[in-house]
């Protein structure tokens, strides 16, 4: 399998109260296309920072981050936004649906950025909603959905643009066991059947059973060294 994501010496620093915080410190990592990678580690170990960098919603201080052939660390804010719209679907722990939009409208939201006809948009939204098994709730607002249903809508929103990478930040962190299992099965289906590369941050060891491999981060580095070109569990 070809490498989809490659990090070399990836470092992220920011200043807080006069101190330099370094949540990610010279990380090397390669993620093959079609991988389902779980990131674990204690709070502050750099999991979410790494996820945000891969998703293009944060920029590295040093190092290289190449996703699908693009060195996204060098892109301007505007180009990075356009890149995110095409290549990444983000699933949040707290779903982050827009409360005044229905499930259908929430899923349709990313398509505003794509030059599609109304018919094409409709087909894509319906397909995404059906894919996550929530098409019958398309007219419901987030407040009328359960947590599990909201997360399904969020996953539909993440896949509606057909991105190469789905990043998920603790996607089951706010769900009961049954809903968590359903969401994880859905992510695994997307990985196995649709070939999506999934990178997931989790605190729950049970959810790592759905991933093809798990990496542990500690103090901004991979526990046990580099994971370039190999699988570390």
């Amino acid at each position: 399998m070809s490498v989809l994501i490659e990090c070399r010496g990836l470092t992220r620093e920011y200043r807080k109260g006069g101190q330099v915080i370094r949540p990610l410190d010279g990380l090397d990592l390669a993620v093959p296309r079609g991988d389902f990678l779980a990131l674990m580690g204690p709070s502050g170990s750099g999991k979410t920072t790494l996820l945000n960098l891969i998703a293009g919603i944060d920029s590295p201080t040093r190092g290289e981050l190449i996703v699908d052939g693009a060195d996204i660390g060098t892109l301007s804010r505007r180009r990075l936004a356009a890149w995110r719209a095409r290549h990444v679907g983000y699933v949040f722990q707290l779903y982050n649906l827009v409360p005044v939009l229905t499930a259908y409208e929430n899923v349709e939201l990313p398509l505003l950025l794509h030059p599609l006809t109304r018919r094409q948009k409709h087909d894509r939204v319906v397909t995404a909603l059906e894919r996550v098994g929530i098409a019958d709730r398309r007219g419901h607002f987030p407040s009328q959905l359960s947590g599990g249903q909201e997360q399904r809508v969020a996953i539909a929103r993440a896949i509606v643009t057909d991105p190469a990478v789905i990043v998920a930040d603790e996607p089951t962190g706010d769900l009961d066991k049954a809903s968590a299992r359903a969401v994880m099965e859905l992510l695994r289906e997307l990985n196995r059947e649709s070939g999506k590369t999934v990178i997931m941050v989790t605190h729950d060891p049970k959810t790592t059973e759905y991933a093809s491999r798990t990496l542990h981060l500690e103090e901004g580095r991979l526990a046990g060294g580099s994971a370039v070109g190999g699988v570390m569990a």
């Binding site: 998703a55 995110r84 983000y90 643009t161």
Partner: peptide
């Protein structure tokens, strides 16, 4: 957070 979500979805700051 809603505006941050929009930007995470690919909307630029200007948009």
């Amino acid at each position: 957070s809603e505006h941050a979500v929009l930007r995470a979805l690919g909307f630029s700051g200007g948009q």
